[in-house]
């Protein structure tokens, strides 16, 4: 009894220490975001007097638009990305992971190859393409690709998960008269829920971070994302450090909250969602 309790507490102690180690730089970040620029060069972790103005002024930005506007823009874009990514990646992954069709291997190789070519060399032709379609300075070039399978990474990820599901389940459903479509909707889709949550989280975080695409495709300020607005604090010689650190700390918060809330779905896992079909 006591040893069990002791083990529990030592585990908590270990995890807390480990978390602090991982979080140490973040604690630095919080402190730095409250400092005056002159104070940033000091080795202290915390400012002598916290500058909450870094947050309020940073949020107010330049008057015409505040960060409320940029957060709303980004969240709207993210909604499209996540919905598109989760739905279509699952559909495509089922095709690759469970069905036999002509040239499956060929198309799957192509899918993987698209990941291996560095994006830096396709970005210009892609921009020219979207420019010809008059779709630049809109969210379309940023959101649309997510509706086409969400990217090779996620398709491959889900394929691996689908291949981990025993085929006995399909066979049983087939005997009940289910088709490939039925098996997808009733068996596979619910069973890969932890992986789908992963796809949703990663889609969210990675598109939040995707500065290169955003700077290219969004040019009017009223369409700016949080990432673009943040870069406005940085100029050639002049960086508004306090506001930059404050706002970029806030900008990771939606991802943190999302991760915190979504993880109970990993925890459920197959044991509670699965098998009953």
């Amino acid at each position: 009894m006591t040893t069990a309790a002791g083990a529990k507490w030592s585990r908590h102690l270990f995890l807390t220490l480990f978390s602090l180690l991982m979080l140490y730089p973040v604690i630095w970040w919080v402190g730095a975001s409250l400092k005056k620029t002159e104070e940033l060069s000091l080795p202290t972790l915390w400012p002598s007097k916290p500058m909450w103005e870094n947050y309020s002024n940073g949020w107010r930005f330049s008057g015409e638009y505040t960060f409320t506007h940029f957060f709303a823009n980004t969240l709207l874009m993210e909604l499209g990305n996540v919905v598109g990514g989760v739905l279509t990646a699952a559909i495509v992954a089922y095709g690759f992971g469970r069905l036999n069709f002509k040239l499956r291997g060929f198309w799957f190789s192509i899918l993987l190859l698209t990941m291996m070519l560095p994006g830096q060399v396709t970005v210009v032709p892609q921009y020219i393409l979207f420019n010809k379609l008059s779709l630049v300075d809109s969210y379309v070039p940023l959101v649309l690709p997510h509706f086409f399978g969400g990217g090779a990474f996620f398709i491959f990820l889900l394929v691996q998960f689908i291949r981990g599901i025993p085929r006995d389940l399909d066979e049983a459903a087939k005997i009940d008269g289910a088709s490939v479509y039925g098996i997808f909707l009733r068996i596979v889709f619910p069973l890969i829920k932890p992986a789908l949550i992963t796809v949703a989280i990663f889609t969210f975080i990675w598109s939040w971070d995707d500065f290169f695409a955003q700077v290219l495709y969004l040019s009017s300020v009223d369409k700016f994302t949080v990432g673009l607005a943040l870069r406005m604090f940085i100029d050639q010689f002049d960086i508004q450090w306090g506001q930059l650190l404050a706002m970029s700390l806030l900008s990771v918060m939606p991802s943190v909250v999302l991760f915190f809330l979504a993880q109970k779905h990993f925890v459920e896992g197959i044991a509670t969602t699965g098998l009953k079909g």
Partner: peptide
């Protein structure tokens, strides 16, 4: 099975043909 397979991968396939193939081919040419 072929029909079902292609139907399922069609979101990716369409996207590949519309948005990805040309830039990749361009970069190869360039």
């Amino acid at each position: 099975a072929n029909l079902a397979g292609y139907l399922f991968i069609s979101p990716w396939l369409i996207g590949f043909l519309l948005l990805t193939l040309w830039p990749i081919a361009q970069s190869f040419y360039l």
